[in-house]
């Protein structure tokens, strides 16, 4: 049985959209979003390891 929740777009943006921005910034080697948004905070452990955030690669 699946229960519908009240999660709105904000949660989906945090869980799904922000990781895509982080991943794409890593792949293309350029920040695609204001770095103060800290999109890397929304990555799960596999995303962190497979698409390390740009600021970590540039360190």
């Amino acid at each position: 049985m699946a229960l519908q929740t009240n999660w709105g777009p904000e949660k989906a943006i945090d869980d799904e959209m922000k990781p895509v921005f982080s991943m794409a910034s890593t792949i293309y080697g350029e920040p695609l979003i204001n770095e103060n948004v800290h999109v890397y905070k929304h990555l799960n452990y596999l995303q962190k390891l497979q698409y390390p955030p740009l600021f970590k690669l540039n360190n």
Binding site: Q4, T5, W7, P9, I13, M17, F21, V37
Partner: peptide, 26 residues
């Protein structure tokens, strides 16, 4: 396509399109 989504990802604008809630497995 990233430019289009960016204001929403940055929290500059509210998402105006439909996004129904997620589903939890019971």
């Amino acid at each position: 396509a990233f430019e289009f989504l960016r204001p929403y990802a940055q929290g500059d604008e509210k998402w105006p399109y439909k996004q129904i809630g997620g589903q939890k497995k019971q």
